[in-house]
Each structure stands twice: as C-alpha cells, then as structure tokens.
Design a protein around this nucleic acid. Sequence first.
DNA 1: ATCGTTGTTTGATCCAGCGCAAAGAAACCG
DNA 2: CGGTTTCTTTGCGCTGGATCAAACAACGAT
Lengths: 230, 230
Amino acid sequence: MHILVGTQLFRGLDSPQLIEVAAEAKRVTKEPEQYFFRQGDQARRLFVALKGRVKVVQITPQGHQIVMRYVGAGEMFGSVPLYAGREYLSAGQAVTSAEALSWSGAAMDRLMSRWPVIARNAVELLAEELLDIRTRYQELATERVERRVARALSRLVRQAGRKVEGGVLIDFPVSRQDLGEITGTTLHTVSRILSSWEQRGIVSSGRRRILIRRPHELISIAEDLYHKGS
Amino acid sequence: MHILVGTQLFRGLDSPQLIEVAAEAKRVTKEPEQYFFRQGDQARRLFVALKGRVKVVQITPQGHQIVMRYVGAGEMFGSVPLYAGREYLSAGQAVTSAEALSWSGAAMDRLMSRWPVIARNAVELLAEELLDIRTRYQELATERVERRVARALSRLVRQAGRKVEGGVLIDFPVSRQDLGEITGTTLHTVSRILSSWEQRGIVSSGRRRILIRRPHELISIAEDLYHKGS
DNA sequence: ATCGTTGTTTGATCCAGCGCAAAGAAACCG
DNA sequence: CGGTTTCTTTGCGCTGGATCAAACAACGAT
C-alpha cells in the first residue's frame, strides 16, 4: 500500500500514478516545536502530512497567537498562500513528532495539469476549509467562551480522539494556552472552564492532556440543548 | 467587449471561449433585499456578479446574522458549498439592484475540464478568500471593536469607495446594523463609534450612508500607528 | 534529590461593550 | 400630508472575561 493512499489531495489516483507523484516530493520529518514553514517565508511548497500532528498558527503584530487548525495524517497544509502566490501568513509547527511530503509550486502545476483530478481535489479541500473557518468565525462573533471551548474540544475529539478506558483522550498534547489560542480567549479563562467541567465530571485533564469522560455532556454544552445559562 | 472580460474566474480565456462559457450560463437579476440563493438550499449553482453588490450572510440557529463578505462586479460567489458538495450555509442577498450569471455544477465541471485554467483560477480565488477570512478571524479574536470597525470600513473603502468632494463614499447602502454584523458587535456600539468619529471629523455618516472624510486617520485607528488607546 | 522551567490554578480587580429602554430623525406610503 | 416603518442616537446599569498577581504542580536535566 502506497504512502499516499488515503491522502485527500491525491484521492482518485491509482498506484502507479501515486508513485510518480511521490517521486516529485521531498520527505520531511520534524520534532515537536519545529517548523515545517514559518510565517513570512515566501510560500514555495505544499505539504501533505503522513504522520503526527501539525498546528497551523498565525501571530499578530502585537504578538497574539491564533491556532487556525490542527492537521493530521492525510491532510494537506501550507497550500493556501502557495495557490494565492504569496508568503505564508501562518506557520506550520509540529506538535508531535511528524512527517510530511512536500511539493514545489511548479511540481504541483505539472501534476495538476497531468491529472486534473488533483486540481479538483484541491478545490474541494479549500472549499471545505472555508466552510469550516466560516463556521468558527460565526461562533467567535456570536457565542460565549464556554460554548466555544466546548465546540473546540468536540472538534478535537472528532479529529484526534482516542478511546481509552474512562473516556476519550485527545491523543496529542494540548495546553490551556493552546485552547485559548484556538477559541480566542486566555489560558486563565480556559483553565477556569476546565476546572468547572472537571468538578462536574465531564472532563479530567492534566498537564497538556485532556480526557473527555462524558462526551455527550460536552456536546450538550456546545449545542445548548435544553437550558441557556450555566 | 464581452461581459465576462474582467471576471476573476474566467481570466485567461479569450473572447470566443468566453462566448462559449457564457452560453452555458443563466442570467439573473435581483432587486435589493432579494436572494440569489438562500441558506439551507441545496447548492446547485455558482454565481459571478456582473453589476451591483451582493452580500453573503450567515444566520445562526439563535438568529444572529453575520456578514461574511460583500461581492462586487467580476467576483465569484456561492461557489464554496458547490465545490464541497453541500448545501448553502450562507445566503447571497442583493444589496443594490444586481445582476449575475450562474452555472450549474455539471456545467462548471465540463468547463473546467475543457479549460483547466478555470480550475486554476477557482483554486486561487478560494485561497484568496481563505487568507482574507483568516485575517479577519484573527482580528475578531484579538482586537477591540473600534479597531475592527475601522478595519471593516477601510476594506469597504477599498472595495467600493467612490471619491466625491469631501472624501470617499461607500457607494452602496450600509447600516449600523450591517457594520455590526460584519465586525461581530451590536448596532449600538457601532453607532457610538461612528458618532465619536463624526465629532473628530473623520467620517460623516447618515442613514445607511457613510462618507469617509479623513481616510488616513481611519487607517491609523485600524493599524494603531503611534499610540495604544483611544 | 534539587533546581529550573514550563504549565496550571485561583483570587481580586476592572472595564469594554452588551442588553435594555426610549426618544429622535429620515424615508416611505396611501 | 399624516401615519407608519425603518434607522439612528444616547443614556444607564450590569457582567463576562481580560488583566494583574501569586502560588502551586509536574516534568526534565544534572
């Protein structure tokens, strides 16, 4: 089974084609905290994650950091500014030890004109990403922090939840600070919220480690089933 | 000069090609307040604006509205869920009397495989849109209301500013409510902010009408040149 | 073990901006 | 023109969360 099987960007290609595609790629491995690309770099390459977790973060001139998304195996990242012909406005940083393949813009052009399905896939992936961020934009604009944190956690469970006894564990390190940067709040507020959930038995969290004990209760906070406040 | 000349999606096609492209399209005209498509509709068509302004809005289950973007002549809209194969998560509503061409998903597929440059353009446009909304996401997460309103206004000036004596006029109706829905705040707060700017001689606004008298002062609020507060 | 570093918790204070309310002001309509 | 509707303005009180501050806990390195 070829390493590119199961990647979103190359879905629809057969094995010989995947081999040709992979031949053009460069393989990169990064340890936690290291960068695949940095904010401000001229965008030259597009990445597809093979292993591990990568977070895409943006830093404001004032130094605030925002986590845009987490990328897992099979997903594409670093692509946006490449297509738009710009510099990276965000950085791609390994969260766990991670591995990815990367292609240059020119290589992607060749591949896409040879197999148009790749272009089709790219359009679809970007569209999905747009839908996702619009939803989060709307949440940020209209919902309070607790709900946003609940939503963010639910999303993490979906993307990276591993069932263990006692609940579902987010299977890579996530700090309070990270959750704050995902939801647009401070680590302090996140900490308070998690503490209150801990007391209610909904989660059980430690140092950069979050275990969700009652996923459906989390969802009911995220979606506000029955009641309004508290 | 063909009507499709100058549209972003079909850049790079020559006149005979544009004629063929247009032959597949349906022409639609809408009066202010009318919808090109509604939230929840199955996404069937992609639009390219020819005339007027269209706003793309999203409504939350709780009834909050968010303005995602304004679309002007030559720009594509309604495309995202089409590519992602979903229903519209936002609505496209005419702000002024507006005109657009639209294509079905099947037609776009045909056109794209015949002239791959269209797919290429689509990728680029979606990428641009992603960069834009990420920037705004970051602003919403980290900046206060006055700055966000200043940014939003600056953007409107860039997209739809018309020079008149005494300043630059946003050349379509924008209410306080609209500005609130763009920046994620309430019409009250927007009104207060505009009043204070009015006193400082920066803008001069009326009923759904905004004239920017000192664009560079607006920008200095948006970008926070020299000082921090007020 | 011990120290230094990095992440977490919790308290106390403060304020930007929301929600509510009510009164103008401009446009629209018959 | 008078009545209605749609926008805008402004005041007031309240509060969600930011900010500031300090102690605490877990981990890594030596």
